[in-house]
């Protein structure tokens, strides 16, 4: 196996290095990726997508953060499936790991350090978390909502929100996190997130446009034109993404840490 691995690595590596040898320099603003492909005489072949994004996004979508604009609008279809990947992962982990009936074969609880010393540490951690978790959650909501103007968006905010619940589960135990954020709730939330996303797309379809063509939503959104409708809809889909990501991140953690029993975590 080691020899096979070595051969595979050497072959792949040398092939890649061979490809690298003819790359444009690192950081070249005029490289094909950044400025569109050009023939040897300097004639552009087709228009550059990246330059289009940078120069036209402000006019077309009114969103300063280009990444958010590209993510949620130009390549919104991709992002929807990215969310679907997460959703699928959540479903997959449920399907693989979740123990629905008490199974005799499951192993006993993991060897856990329950000495007084551990309890002692728990108080400090618990208190810190009590203070920290609301702050994290607040910040993550800000990240979701402010994705248009600063780094962030549905994914980052969603992961942070999910992480806050994970933190709760780590700090206290999984059970107490699950008392509010029950399995039914987070599974529903995951579905609802994608439903929100796809719902925006579907609405555009009902208004005789292509899927995810938010511009047309100015018909139903109050006080907007095509450009602002895009901007607002992007916020909508980011919220959808955040829902799904939050729910699934927590779901994955809950299943992984309790071997699918959803009783006690770490």
């Amino acid at each position: 196996m080691k020899w096979f691995a070595l051969i595979a690595v050497v072959i792949t590596g040398s092939l890649l290095i061979y490809g690298v040898s003819d790359f444009p320099d690192w950081g070249d603003a005029q490289s094909p990726a950044n400025a569109g492909a050009k023939s040897s005489t300097g004639e552009p072949i087709g228009e550059s997508v990246s330059q289009f994004y940078i120069t036209e996004t402000g006019r077309l979508t009114h969103v300063p953060n280009l990444v958010t604009a590209v993510l949620a609008d130009y390549r919104g279809y991709d992002t929807m499936f990215e969310t679907v990947v997460i959703f699928a992962a959540g479903m997959a982990i449920f399907a693989i790991l979740r123990v629905l009936r008490e199974d005799k074969h499951t192993l006993g609880p993991p060897a856990k350090d329950t000495t007084a010393d551990g309890d002692h540490g728990r108080i400090i951690v618990g208190t810190t978390c009590k203070i920290l978790i609301p702050v994290i959650q607040l910040f993550s909501l800000y990240v979701v909502a402010h994705g248009h103007y600063s780094p962030g968006g549905g994914f980052q905010g969603g992961v942070m929100l999910g992480a806050s619940f994970i933190l709760l589960a780590v700090a206290k135990d999984l059970g107490s996190a699950l008392t509010w954020f029950t399995e039914k709730r987070f599974m529903t939330l995951a579905c609802v997130g994608i439903l929100i996303y796809a719902g925006f797309g579907l609405m555009a379809q009902f208004l005789q446009r292509h899927f995810l063509d938010y511009g047309v939503l100015h018909v139903i959104l109050p006080k907007t034109d095509e450009v602002m409708a895009r901007s607002h809809s992007m916020l909508g889909v980011e919220i959808g993404v955040a829902f799904t990501v939050t729910a699934i991140m927590f779901a994955i953690y809950a299943n992984l840490s309790s071997r699918g029993e959803l009783k006690r975590g770490l």
Partner: peptide, 18 residues
């Protein structure tokens, strides 16, 4: 051809949308 999000070649450059 079907352009997702409506970014067809009239509104934008080819490849901007999916």
């Amino acid at each position: 051809s079907y352009f997702m999000s409506g970014w067809d070649t009239e509104k934008s450059v080819l490849g901007a949308g999916i």
